[in-house]
Design a binder for these strands. Structure first.
Lengths: 246, 246
DNA sequence: GCCCTTATGAATGTCAGACAATTAAAGGTC
DNA sequence: GACCTTTAATTGTCTGACATTCATAAGGGC
């Protein structure tokens, strides 16, 4: 039973086989936790060697579409894509997209804050005392003068994640994971250069206060000001660099 | 030179090797278009067989991190992650996440429209005549009574993509690709059941008109009403199903 | 000297067969 | 019944071979 796609034998056999199985999974013809045929059976079905089948399965495993188990009654199983897996894939992809495509700081910054502001109304309405406490804890950490730059950045990311999560919509959290996390490298560039923690902390405080009062408008304003401030810092850094190069 | 990670030899060798190379790429130790050592060289460096190296490389290829070229002076090269590749990965992941995790219609719908509303202010400010024309063309198509359900859904997706793209921020477009496209299966469920094209077309028209006037508030309102309407339809479908099961 | 054709070699793609490692289940022992 | 042993199925890894592709170099005709 060859998969003779009439038109395009451009792809490797392993890519074609992976594609066939992927389609079966995405279209729901194979359900979660269903076992795939063994490598030997697949190689017979597709009329290829076991190595080729294995390469195809590794491709699928890399996308968390399947998991494998050794031993008797082991094999490859359709994997339930967890939020955790989806998050990390999202973050890797976003990070690479930004670092490899000469995306301007303005564009990335705008995308990030636009998405975060989208969460503000929901977060203001639904924020729990717990999520608010998380945010305030991060702000307290950021206020410590002896905090390393790395730790400050990590805390910054944690705070923004807490804001997103406060919206109480896991799908939204997943979609924004990339936007928030992938900005960290760019944020580092700024925080390490311009000393500006007080201003950032004060804007973070304004944001937390707004959520505390369940005031969506104020939260929106705080995020707008944070974006404007970040943008200013970014431009300063760029200007300094351009100057140095000269 | 074995990669003896002291603690966790739980992973396959091919997964470990893929991880090592992935880290090198993500951390920027390997730059775009740089050539990896040949499979033979890698197998010597890592002290494994060529098959194992190949499986590792296929994993990376599945994530679009590398591309391979046959022939003399061929090999594996660090791939520039294009927006197109990132889009399709995003869509696959989002679709699977939704279909495999029993996400409620309400949650998915809320996430989608929250994200789209985030684009509204930018789209209202920056929309070109071109992007507006695209939207109106899709609306015209949706008004044809003899349009198949499949084509109507596809047109719906195209219109929403046009809205997102009108914001003129490619990073934002990428982030929203999953939200818009992954909803199609769920939207199908509704459109195929409830006959409601007139209402949808009228809301789409209101949206396009608002963008035409560069009126962000009106666009926001239109999206809110579209969300509310979609939600009503979804609930009806659910209720009907529950009734049938009984 | 210039262009076309033909080797050449390096690399990936594919195959076949073997063995190691793992694991659940069946069977045996007490 | 509890514990140990065997067994069989399956993935993981290795080895060696051959097929295929393709840029470059070499050669030949003019």
């Amino acid at each position: 039973m060859k998969t003779a796609s009439s038109a395009e034998p451009r792809q490797d056999l392993s890519a074609q086989i992976a594609e066939a199985v992927r389609t079966a999974i995405v279209e729901g013809r194979m359900i979660v936790d269903e076992r795939l045929p063994s490598e030997a059976e697949l190689s017979e079905q597709f009329g290829v060697s076991r190595s080729t089948v294995r390469e195809a399965l590794k491709r699928l495993a890399a996308q968390s579409l399947i998991r494998t188990q050794r031993g008797a009654f082991g094999g490859a199983f359709v994997n339930r894509l967890s939020y955790t897996d989806a998050y990390s894939q999202q973050i890797t992809t976003s990070t690479l997209l930004l670092s490899m495509n000469a995306v301007s700081f303005e564009t990335a910054c705008e995308a990030r804050y636009t998405l975060e502001r989208a969460c503000a109304p929901l977060a203001a309405r639904r924020r729990t005392d717990d999520s608010l406490a998380t945010m305030r804890a991060e702000i307290a950490r950021q206020s410590q003068p002896d905090l390393s730059d790395e730790a400050f950045c990590a805390s910054d990311v944690a705070l923004h994640r807490a804001l997103v999560d406060a919206a109480g919509n896991p799908v939204l959290s997943y979609q924004l994971a990339g936007a928030v996390e992938a900005m960290q490298p760019l944020m580092n560039m700024i925080t390490f250069t311009a000393r500006s923690r007080e201003e950032i902390v004060s804007l973070h405080t304004a944001l937390a206060d707004a959520l505390g009062r369940k005031d969506a408008t104020a939260a929106n304003t705080a995020l707008h000001r944070l974006e404007a401030y970040t943008l200013t810092l970014g431009r300063d850094v760029m200007a300094t660099r351009a100057h140095k190069r000269k």
